[in-house]
Simulated assay, not measured.
Amino acid sequence: MAKKSSMERVAEAAEATGLEITILTMPDSTRTAEEAANACKCEVGQIVKSLIFQREDTEEFVLLLVAGDRQADLEAAATVVGGPLTRADAKRVRKETGFAIGGVAPIGHMCPVAVYMDPALLNHEIVWAAAGAPNAVFSVCPAKLKAAVGAAVLA
């Protein structure tokens, strides 16, 4: 059996959670929030940055879904997550989640990941997220994404 691509995992995860999405392959990179906003013709704040960190105490992965026009507040997140966070090693992220940094999607991970969402994303009708490749994206209602991934809202 052939190994599934990251984009195939995202599509299957969306279907499994009842998210109706269409993955778009853009002609240019969507690796940064600014590039993605230009490609998607939306505000930078509508871009979902899927940022993988690890807990310092347990080394478990934590996925922070952050609005493209904001930075992850690791101190505030630590109070919600239950422990301090540190950057995750890119090779470990790729090996365990199946996604390379820059193409991390909010769904379709190969391992369980606790998910936390920036409340600013919920202010939009539609947000855009990475779909497993540096130029692949999908749009979704942020409340539906939150429900699909079981995200807790960051304070």
Rank of each mutant, 00 (worst) to 15 (best):
Y116M: 09
T58G: 05
A120Y: 11
T22V: 14
V44M: 06
C42T: 12
K146R: 15
A37K: 10
M117F: 06
V153L: 15
D89S: 09
S50N: 08
L121D: 05
L74Y: 03
G45Q: 12
D118I: 02
R70Y: 06
A39K: 05
A78K: 03
L63Q: 11
I101M: 08
L24C: 08
M117G: 02
S6Q: 07
N38S: 11
A90P: 14
A13Y: 06
E43Y: 04
G102M: 05
V115R: 10
E35L: 04
A152E: 14
P112H: 02
C40A: 13
V62H: 00
D69K: 00
A16I: 04
K49M: 08
A67C: 11
V93G: 13
L64I: 11
I101C: 01
A105M: 12
A147E: 14
S139Q: 08
A120T: 08
L51N: 11
V113C: 00
I107L: 05
A16Y: 00
A131T: 04
P112Q: 01
G45M: 02
D89G: 06
V153T: 11
E59H: 10
L74D: 09
E12F: 00
T58S: 15
A16D: 10
P142L: 02
V113Q: 09
L74N: 07
K95L: 10
E75D: 13
A148W: 04
